[in-house]
Design a protein around this nucleic acid. Structure first.
Lengths: 106, 106
DNA sequence: CACAAGGTACGACTTCAGTCGTACCTTGCG
DNA sequence: CGCAAGGTACGACTGAAGTCGTACCTTGTG
């Protein structure tokens, strides 16, 4: 069985869900910031300062997690999120490069 | 100015619209079939035999066209669609390879 | 010319995704 | 202990997206 609740295994990652998750500019911004940071960088949800409410932030991170793009682990007080870089690269090579190349209006 | 109605130029192609367009399995199927065919292959909308009505087919092809993924030109009786392969490769290298690699339930 | 084939336009319906407020839970800290 | 910080759960609202039927236009063909 997978890790915890809502983390698909590498084989379970579906292109459709990944593309749907990345269709949203806020979620794309989260992934891009994580992809630009050193591998293994883990940040809290709130550290991204998304211009939406807490409830909406939770919703977006759940979408990213269930798509298989990020990993979320409880760490005492808060919950840390980090990019599943190796898994993404294995399933969709070149995808992260496309995302990090995005510039302009975000 | 661009070509005809609804064809963005290469620079106007936006990642968000491309990902939104590709989030739909039917549209992904169209792009994949075109990408698998030889470059320059042009097909009619109806030749894809999508399991939806004519009106819906028109809708999906308009979405693909406005996202900049396909080109549509009137050719007498019908309207031929072909992949904007060079433009896509220029803006998002590796994207088409990800799509053509998709297997399983479509 | 008349008609079928291929698409588009428009309006309508339904489902889904993004958004929020509120209530609530857990953990760390003073 | 008591409280603030960080997140989640739930219900609700709204707008967007996929779907369809019908009507209509254009082009090629018999």
């Amino acid at each position: 069985m997978p890790d915890e609740e809502g983390h698909p295994t590498v084989e379970e990652i579906e292109l459709g869900k990944v593309l749907s998750a990345l269709a949203d500019p806020l979620r794309r911004r989260v992934v891009r910031e994580l992809a630009d940071a050193p591998d293994g960088t883990a940040r809290t949800c709130s550290s991204f300062a998304l211009p939406v409410s807490k409830a909406t932030v939770t919703h977006h991170f759940r979408t990213l997690r269930e798509a298989g793009l990020i990993r979320q682990v409880d760490r005492g007080n808060s919950r840390m999120a980090d990019l599943r870089r190796a898994d993404i690269d294995a399933r969709f090579p070149g995808l992260l490069a496309i995302l990090t190349a995005e510039t302009g209006a975000h």
